[in-house]
């Protein structure tokens, strides 16, 4: 094995690819300071769609792991529910993907929201174990203290921090 250091088997070498959603339609009120823009599922989806899969150079949206339909937002009740669907039932990366989504949401959402992140029911062999790990706040916090893990998570989030192209005359 001459390339032993980078030779790792892919768990899902030929994943199914999904169509990317079109950008949100611009409205005149978007730039009107007197109009309040409510939180919606699309806004939360925008935050996580570009997270990279740890195995493939594709986004979670392209792999169908995150979908707008799997997100609900209750602005008044301060609650957001997000479920994600691993590409295969035995995906060992599910926890890492969940952690990346969790980190991204912790960094991007106001603290008033209670975020429930879980695997879409019936889509993963170890659904309950992974969900338990993701719900454990201390565990997530401890993971964020681990330099190696945070490096992997930051790598998967790197595409989500590319400059957004808004009509801002710059």
């Amino acid at each position: 094995m001459v390339f032993a250091s980078i030779d790792q088997a892919l768990q899902n070498a030929t994943p199914t690819l999904f169509q990317k959603a079109k950008p949100r339609e611009q409205k005149a009120s978007d730039w009107d300071d007197d109009v309040r823009d409510p939180w919606d599922a699309r806004e939360v989806f925008e935050l996580i769609r570009e997270i990279r899969d740890p195995e493939h150079p594709m986004s979670l949206e392209e792999l169908g792991v995150v979908q707008e339909e799997l997100i609900t937002v209750n602005d008044e009740e301060n609650e957001i529910n997000v479920t994600f669907t691993p590409t295969i039932p035995h995906c060992s990366m599910a926890t890492l993907i969940g952690l990346s989504i969790s980190v991204k949401l912790i960094r991007s959402l106001p603290r008033r929201f209670k975020v429930n992140l879980a695997i879409t029911p019936g889509t993963h062999a170890q659904e309950h174990q992974v969900n338990r790990q993701l719900k454990d706040k201390e565990r997530v916090a401890a993971a964020l203290e681990n330099p190696n893990l945070i490096k992997v998570v930051n790598n998967s989030l790197i595409k989500t921090v590319e400059e957004i192209d808004l009509d801002d005359d710059f």
Binding site: D30, R36, D37, E43, L47, R107, L109, L166
Partner: peptide, 9 residues
């Protein structure tokens, strides 16, 4: 405003 939230995030 959503646009500020997006830039803020």
């Amino acid at each position: 405003k959503r646009v500020i939230r997006q830039h803020g995030a």
